[in-house]
């Protein structure tokens, strides 16, 4: 019974963090997706037009967003918004002795503060990534049809044909890993902050810079080595 109550209490914090990291990031993710999708449409249209391959606009935008741009930009945007806030909040708790007070009251801060945030960040980023892909593809379609005068039906038909399960799996696998990095590095730098007011800023800065660099580095590793087919993970 006590265990159930504790799960309920942690569940409440998890939902708060899910809302903070995920739902409250929707505005910034929406605008990022619109602009990235629109720019992708413009940039890929130029070479495609030179070869008379405008019908490949949908696949270009769709694959680039799904495999690469959505997870990376979601990771970076959420690192700047929520990762920084997590680091600052926990560092402030450290400076004001709230973490010491929690330990003194017999509650493990790793369990109470960090676990719900890391879990929420890891689970919410793939959902944001799916949302980013959808909005980005619509933005690409809008630019393609309204500005570049491409055929909208061909855009969707070709996009649907080109983007398959393996693209989605790779994009979402990256998003899960980036979500873990964003929330866990925010928690790590916040928790290990010093005891001065300055250390809150330092922890926040370190968390954002380290997360973005780790996202970019691991993106390269994942792109190079993540199996094209997820079943290969099990076979290997």
């Amino acid at each position: 019974m006590a265990g159930m109550k504790q799960i309920h209490r942690r569940g409440h914090i998890f939902l708060q963090q899910f809302d903070f990291i995920g739902v409250q990031s929707l505005t910034v993710i929406t605008f990022s997706a619109i602009f990235i999708g629109a720019v992708m449409a413009f940039q890929t249209y130029i070479p495609l037009h030179q070869f008379g391959m405008e019908s490949f606009l949908g696949p270009s935008v769709g694959i680039a967003l799904t495999r690469e741009l959505a997870p990376v930009f979601c990771g970076i945007m959420v690192a700047g918004r929520a990762g920084a806030a997590i680091a600052a909040e926990i560092a402030t708790m450290r400076v004001t002795e709230q973490i010491d007070a929690m330990e003194a009251l017999g509650t493990d801060p790793h369990d109470y503060i960090m676990a719900p945030r890391i879990l929420a960040g890891t689970l919410v980023l793939p959902l944001l990534c799916i949302y980013f892909i959808l909005i980005g593809c619509f933005a690409g379609w809008a630019i393609g049809t309204l500005v570049l005068e491409c055929d909208g039906a061909v855009y969707w038909q070709q996009l649907g044909w080109a983007v398959d399960f393996t693209d989605v799996w790779q994009g979402l696998a990256k998003a899960v890993i980036f979500g873990f990095f964003v929330s866990s590095l925010g928690c790590f730098y916040g928790y290990n902050a010093g005891n001065s007011a300055e250390s809150v800023g330092v922890a926040t800065n370190k968390a954002v810079v380290a997360t973005i660099l780790l996202i970019l580095f691991s993106d390269y590793i994942l792109t190079a080595y993540l199996p094209y087919d997820p079943s290969n993970l099990i076979l290997h």
Binding site: E97, Q98, A104
Partner: peptide, 18 residues
């Protein structure tokens, strides 16, 4: 945790959870 059940502490600034 086992030993701290004996201990209570009042921090300098209270350290209330904001």
């Amino acid at each position: 945790k086992h030993i701290r059940r004996h201990l209570g502490i009042l921090f300098q600034n209270g350290a209330l959870f904001d």
